Simulated assay, not measured.
Amino acid sequence: MSPTQRRTFLSLGAAAVLPDIAAAPSRLGTGDVHGIAQHTVALEEWDRRSGGRATWHFAGLELRRAVDLSAASMTPAVRTAWSGAVARLAGLYAWATFDAGEKGAAAAFDLALDAAREADDALAYCHIATNAARQAVHEGNAARALSLTASATGPHPPAVLAMVSAVTAQALALQGDIRVVMRAVAAAEAHASRAGDSAQEGWLQTLTPAKLRSDLGYALYRLSATTGHLAPDVVPQLRRTAGVSAASQPRARAMGAARLATVLFRQGEVDEARHHAAVATDLACAVGSARLDAAIAEMRAAA
């Protein structure tokens, strides 16, 4: 078959198999924005269950499509809603890029923060800024992390303030001052005690007591690594991460188990460490995450 015939054959085959690609609308409505939001929710759930490697490419495609809609005509109210939808989607793309170990996460976080400002959505900004701060903590950049958490403060619900304080504790842990880290941990716990059990929507649903314990456990884990000594309450705090559901949040559960195993191996508590190491390793088989890979590599080095 000649090259021309092959191209014709492939074109005909693709036309028969692949769905039509709808042209970008010339006018954007609330239904279009709702569609972006629905896709983002689905991708967020996929990220929680399968990790950033499974998500970042598809999130990038969705983000490109959503940004291309900026040329469409829309009312001011729709543009505000569109900016909010783009902020959440860009925040997811940035997070998945970071979790997958790909380049460009910081720039994507900046795009998401700009979109949240344009939408005047303080809660979305807070969510994105704290996730960007987590990336900065992972890279050892305490100054950027603290700047981001400071920008995320505001009259938010107690569960959100608890999250901000917990991520602030992670950033402060990089500086090795035990007293200021423990003050931030105490602030997070105080905010959480006022959170109550009211129903939440969207990303606020992820701000569970188990997630907070995981965040605080990581703060004390990073503090221990910085100082070279076990931080107060680090082992009990890491043990509390067992409350994270392995079914709905396998990455978070696996990372908590890997960190706990690392500490226990270093303490010589080998039997319990091996149990948690097995949990982390089993869960990691179904999760594509560079962060989780790094935690397991550290665990194996400690073993």
Rank of each mutant, 00 (worst) to 15 (best):
residue 227 T to E: 02
residue 15 A to R: 11
residue 94 A to G: 11
residue 48 R to D: 15
residue 157 P to Q: 15
residue 230 L to F: 04
residue 10 L to P: 05
residue 147 S to P: 01
residue 284 A to W: 08
residue 96 A to Y: 07
residue 105 A to G: 07
residue 280 A to M: 11
residue 35 G to W: 02
residue 136 A to V: 07
residue 55 T to E: 05
residue 129 A to V: 05
residue 35 G to L: 06
residue 209 P to D: 12
residue 114 D to M: 07
residue 91 G to A: 06
residue 16 A to S: 15
residue 157 P to M: 12
residue 3 P to G: 01
residue 283 L to P: 10
residue 79 R to N: 10
residue 9 F to M: 12
residue 235 V to D: 08
residue 299 M to T: 12
residue 248 S to T: 09
residue 283 L to H: 10
residue 239 R to G: 02
residue 137 V to F: 09
residue 196 G to W: 03
residue 16 A to T: 11
residue 237 Q to N: 07
residue 303 A to I: 11
residue 126 C to Y: 01
residue 146 L to P: 01
residue 176 G to F: 07
residue 14 A to N: 12
residue 138 H to W: 13
residue 107 A to I: 08
residue 291 R to C: 02
residue 146 L to D: 07
residue 244 V to W: 10
residue 131 N to D: 15
residue 221 Y to M: 06
residue 85 A to W: 09
residue 249 Q to D: 14
residue 289 S to R: 08
residue 61 L to I: 00
residue 301 A to E: 14
residue 174 L to K: 05
residue 247 A to V: 11
residue 111 L to R: 10
residue 255 M to Y: 06
residue 91 G to M: 02
residue 189 E to I: 00
residue 3 P to F: 03
residue 28 L to V: 01
residue 56 W to Q: 15
residue 162 A to K: 07
residue 272 E to P: 13
residue 146 L to E: 03
residue 195 A to G: 08
residue 220 L to K: 05
residue 291 R to N: 11
residue 24 A to G: 10
residue 69 L to H: 08
residue 182 M to K: 01
residue 152 A to Q: 02
residue 200 Q to S: 13
residue 61 L to W: 02
residue 234 V to Q: 06
residue 46 W to M: 12
residue 61 L to N: 00
residue 241 T to H: 09
residue 104 G to V: 09
residue 138 H to D: 13
residue 229 H to P: 01
